[in-house]
Design a binder for these strands. Structure first.
Lengths: 221, 221
DNA sequence: TGATTCCATTGATTTCGATCAACGGCGGAA
DNA sequence: TTCCGCCGTTGATCGAAATCAATGGAATCA
């Protein structure tokens, strides 16, 4: 695990983490180059992370290399908080990513000393669980087209309905998130393009304009 | 939602719920006949449940009836605790089931007033999340045989390695838990029987003797 | 105590998504 | 620049699991 340190200053948190941890918790900022590991499955869970810019994927591997991505973390999102002392999955930067890092210990201390902090941690874990429940339904019971449509709507919503949806992740990442292969994901994109549900913007195939959100929602159900 | 009330007494909790909620919380016991609903998706989350005997399935449905079972709850397990005010999924009794019911409100009150309670609730939610993460890997990336082997090992472990594994749920339930069809589940059972990983005990096909737990574990990976 | 419905298995066939393969385009490295 | 490796798409083929179908029990209930 190689990190490049941008800044490591002792200063109060702000934003989401501050609400969680309170003023007396200090933190630092780190940056990860695209494709680098933030932490690995089984490692000590020493820190909690909040994304400032970029994107992170968290995933599990089978021994033969099959990969399942649990979730993508976008700016503002927190990840890496565990109840035990070790990480139950790995995390990697999808693109160049800046994060704010807090010591797990100081976070958990405020959790027991402050009611507000406790319920904030709980609501973070609960939201993550809710996402996992929806994702199990997707992985267990939805068709390829339904999965890709759901993925697009999820990203669209999390990026607050931008005109152009700029996906930070590759088709491989999307496939491993949706339990499909890259070819199937690619074909689903092409189908949705042909049905004029979406349009590619620019040269790269990662800039997408959603033309018919209601149509996409009908694939989901 | 039709309930049959066995007993509704004001008395202190004991066991897991007591650790969670403290002595001043009161509760009652209910019984559900096999196949009956405990609560439905979208309903008010008024109570938290702990299983005394029997088994409960929690699941989500798609509009066309496709079903994904999140998890099976066995004696000792708690379920139905939500962070918001409504249930995010439905719950049904798999067999005749007795539960102990606690008002959500009193549980959440103790959560903020007692540090110990707060971290107990958190660890419950965290364990549920951990199960969901493992299940996403299963649903997204494992083969039918791997899923069924993992299912058997999970049930074996949760029932503390009994000599005869008595499954309370039907093949349909297992299929909807594993993201498969009943036929595929049945064929997987037959394959494992032919490979002498397991043996059926008695007439019903729900009493299973695991002959080779290590062999089963190799299917998982 | 039938009758009816559910349950589980097994066989035949189909199908959706995986796999194998080829190609063109982009981007980073020397 | 030129190379090489990734990235994404598309086509051809394969295969694992779904679907369709039939059967024999077990459980439930009128």
């Amino acid at each position: 695990m190689l990190l490049r340190i941008n800044r490591a200053s002792r200063r109060p948190l702000d934003g989401h983490l501050a609400a969680l941890a309170g003023e007396q918790v200090f933190c630092s900022e780190f940056s990860y180059r695209r494709g680098t590991e933030v932490f690995g499955e089984g490692e000590e869970a020493e820190y909690v992370y909040q994304i400032l810019s970029g994107a992170v994927r968290t995933y599990k591997l089978l021994s033969d290399g099959r990969r399942q991505i649990n979730s993508f973390h976008l700016p503002g999102d927190m990840f890496g908080l565990e109840n035990g002392t070790t990480h139950r999955f790995s995390a990697e930067a999808v693109v160049e990513t800046r994060v704010r890092i807090t010591k797990r210990r100081s976070l958990l201390e405020t959790m027991t000393s402050r009611d507000e902090g406790a319920s904030s941690v709980l609501s973070l874990v609960t939201r993550t669980l809710q996402h996992a429940e929806n994702h199990m339904l997707l992985l267990g019971r939805k068709t390829a087209l339904e999965r890709v449509a759901a993925f697009l709507l999820e990203m669209d919503e999390r990026l607050v309905h931008p005109n152009v949806l700029t996906l930070p992740m590759s088709r491989r990442d999307i496939a491993d998130y949706l339990g499909l292969t890259i070819e199937t994901v690619s074909r689903a994109f092409s189908t949705l393009r042909d049905e004029e549900m979406l349009r590619f913007d620019g040269q790269t195939q990662r800039e997408i304009i959603l033309l018919d959100r209601e149509g996409l929602a009908e694939y989901d159900a």
